[in-house]
Design a binder for these strands. Structure first.
Lengths: 154, 154
DNA sequence: GTATCTGCAAACCCTTTGCAATAAG
DNA sequence: CTTATTGCAAAGGGTTTGCAGATAC
């Protein structure tokens, strides 16, 4: 671990400050939820998050999760990644390198990739529209090789 | 209008062929819905689509709209653009130049832009992962100038 | 002490689905 | 004629919300 990592405040610190700035409270339930979110690098939805917490023997209501998510988004700690099967999926965006998604339209499989060229596009956009840029989401949609074969066979 | 435009089949033709290929039927209700979708360049959701149709004195059930949308996506005529306020929003992607979205995280306002550099990224990804690329969705998230001012004032 | 937060359960609302009647091919 | 499609209304299911009790500060 280099010095840059040591100086980066934890997601808990970031969020505690965010809450205090608006007179909101840092509770054990909120800490439990954030720790669970940041304990993996996977996409999550409310249900999987809830189950993950319970499997650790901890207990938080789904209502508290639903109420916390908009705050985490405002604090720039998580973001919505996609909506599927009737529920929103999220991922944490603080402290991990950004990635984009390549998705198969048929089987919905997802590959992750990164590309620095989008950063330049972002920068130009910020200047052109006078936005303070936070991040981007690039999703490329196609047909994976497996599904291409299936379509040719059918 | 140049010759290239004249040769492009209409969305109705595309969809009729798509349906026939799978033994499905081209009905007046489906035609009504597609015409409504392609009558504007705006994003739409099921509700606004339904109301738009009724305002023209036509009548189609919401169930038929909900059943049609997955077919239009498979036929590459429309795509999901974002999920907001509990409902999915779509836009048609056939016959209009592709654009990306710059969105304000605070007020959710959307600016549209285009950038050809993403096409090169797409191409490389297709080769690297062996995908047949269909399209991309680039969403840049930031804070618009109006919201920046509000945040500084507060 | 006071305002915020939590858990529960009910309410909400978009979307899906079963079914009988209708219509495309 | 046969099979897909429609409209209706009910069911489904993720998300939101009112409320009373608990708790951060």
């Amino acid at each position: 671990m280099d010095s840059k990592d040591q100086k980066r405040p934890s997601e808990l610190d970031i969020f505690r400050d965010f809450l205090r700035r608006q007179g909101m409270r840092y509770t054990p339930e909120r800490e439990t939820i954030i720790k669970e979110i940041f304990s993996t690098h996977e996409h999550f939805d409310v249900d999987s998050l809830y189950l993950g917490i319970r499997q650790k023997g901890l207990r938080v209501s789904k209502a508290s999760i639903y109420r916390l998510i908009p705050l985490l988004i405002k604090a720039n700690l998580i973001e919505e990644v996609f909506f599927e099967n009737g529920q929103m999926h999220y991922e944490h965006i603080y402290g991990h390198e950004h990635h984009c998604h390549l998705r198969c339209q048929e089987c919905r499989k997802i590959e992750e990739f990164s590309d620095e060229r989008v950063v330049q596009i972002e920068k130009e956009l910020g200047e052109r529209f006078n936005y303070r840029i936070l991040r981007h989401k690039l999703e490329v949609i196609g047909i994976c090789s497996t599904c291409q074969k299936k379509m040719n066979t059918a």
